[in-house]
């Protein structure tokens, strides 16, 4: 399908190109996204309460295309809560999160079509095989994938021989790889990853770091929480500290 014209309005061009193009057409697809330099996640004065205590307040940052945000801080500092706020699962006590300048509360599905969230849970079904899990999450993300791409993504994460084993039979690390294989096929611009490197061996860590690097080069955004020091090559890196390390006012 050839695009006859591309409407350059702030938020619309990205959607037109995305809808007009079959996700397989990678090369042209990513070139279109470079066209959109002002993809922006703007967060202002975010506040979070848990159990009557205020975890953090006044948290704000801006993320442009190709940028990565490191969230670090001690356990219980609210890193996961912040991530869940960014993906719209947890409504913030105060403050606002804007995507393309529009608050995510009003965007709803439109925003959810743009983000890929990976939490502590692996979000894979024990009874299904990695192959079924991955093709299912692809369909849920709205992508039509043929078998070859799914197998290629799985082998990239080192699950070459185990595509048809029920996930029950896999080890903790392999389950985590099966969950992360989702990143290999994901074309959505905003990645929210909660400690993606836990329970992974060195090879898998490098592979995931490469995936994230490619995603950033591709003009995507990522928010990452991790405790291991990991080198992500591409993209501008911002850091945000929560909890004691931060100076945010403690109640």
């Amino acid at each position: 399908m050839i695009v006859d014209f591309v409407r350059i309005t702030d938020s619309a061009v990205y959607h037109d190109v995305h809808r007009l193009y079959d996700p397989q057409g990678d090369s042209l697809f990513s070139k279109a996204r470079m066209l959109r330099s002002s993809i922006m996640l703007a967060v202002s004065a975010l506040e979070c309460h848990r159990g009557g205590r205020r975890l953090f307040a006044g948290v704000g940052f801006c993320l442009g295309a190709g940028e990565l945000l490191y969230l670090h801080g001690p356990n219980g500092a609210g890193k996961t809560s912040l991530l869940r706020m960014l993906c719209g699962l947890l409504p913030p006590a105060a403050g606002e999160i804007c995507w393309h300048g529009r608050p995510i509360a009003r965007l709803g599905e439109e925003y959810r079509r743009e983000l890929c969230f990976l939490g502590h849970h692996d979000a894979i079904k024990e009874e299904l095989t990695p192959f079924e899990n991955l093709s299912l999450s692809a369909r849920l993300a709205g992508m039509r994938l043929d078998e070859a791409r799914v197998l290629e993504a799985l082998s990239r994460l080192g699950l070459a021989g185990r595509e048809d084993l029920p996930c029950r039979a896999l080890s903790r690390g392999q389950k985590r790889r099966a969950a992360l294989s989702r990143l290999a096929i994901d074309r959505r611009p905003l990645w929210l990853l909660d400690e993606p490197f836990t329970a992974l061996d060195a090879a898998a860590v490098n592979e995931v770091a490469a995936l994230i690097g490619a995603h950033l080069e591709d003009g995507g955004l990522a928010v990452l929480t991790t405790h291991q020091p990991v080198e992500i090559t591409a993209g501008a890196i911002q850091r945000l500290a929560l909890g004691d390390e931060a100076e945010s006012c403690r109640r």
Partner: peptide
């Protein structure tokens, strides 16, 4: 002796 005066 809470330092911040703001009540939750």
């Amino acid at each position: 002796a809470r330092e911040s005066s703001g009540e939750c």
